[in-house]
Amino acid sequence: MSRVFATLFLVATLVHPAALAGLPLPNRPESVKFAVIGDNGTGDPPEYEVATQMATMRAAFRFDMVIMLGDNMYGRQQPEDFVRKFARPYAPLLDAGVRFYAALGNHDEQTNRSYEPFNMGNQRYYTYARTNVRFFVLDSNYLDPTQLAWIDGALNGAKEEWKICYFHHPLYSDGRRHGSEVELRVQLEPLFVKYRVDVVFSGHDHIYERLTPQKGIQYFVSGSAGQLRKGDVNRSAMTAASFDQDRSFMLVEIAGAELSFAAISRTGQTVDRGVIHKELTR
């Protein structure tokens, strides 16, 4: 009998779309699935190659949203640039109905918040939810008292089980070029700890890095979906995993008390993966 079950399990595993695609994620039905890109808007071939890889992955892993960690647009930001640096590379995803939710980076014009496909509702900072996950998008370029009061209230009022924050400048980073934004950390981290934020995504450093949990919060730097600073990771005691040899993006899946993540390179190689468990309150 046990052999029958074992055979059934093996067959089920093999025919599972995730296994077929060699996906590093469980790919459960009904889970919240999304992709993460940062520092992407160059309009250069590597951005297009990453976007193509994302579309390829989506064939098996049907994420319906992409979070953008800022620097969504480099250089000139005229209407034709929005086509060359955003609409064209991500056309397969946009055509499939994937929604992008952007945060502003230091290279983004403030007016970009009104660009409809970024879904920012003309706001510098905003929040939205997907089933049991609430996302908080901040403008780390200018963390004024009004924004701080807003995030305090928004985190306090969130009822969802998972709280995910994202913004451009990383509170923790081992990137040589920029590194941790300590002044920002002093202001935001107490709120994140107080309201039990689970995961924080940032860009700015053109690398991929997963930090060891800091005060119970999992931090990621994912700023190489278009730009790359090769060899920029200066590994330290807080580096859990890193990748600085090619462009990359992330795929994330949340189901119940489990968040699975994978960092995928421009060529489709899984450069990091893992699972974060949390104790659900109910």
Binding site: N106, Q110, N141, Y142
Partner: peptide, 8 residues
């Protein structure tokens, strides 16, 4: 320097 955020 392509830092439009500083323009403000």
């Amino acid at each position: 320097a392509d830092e439009p955020v500083l323009a403000l």
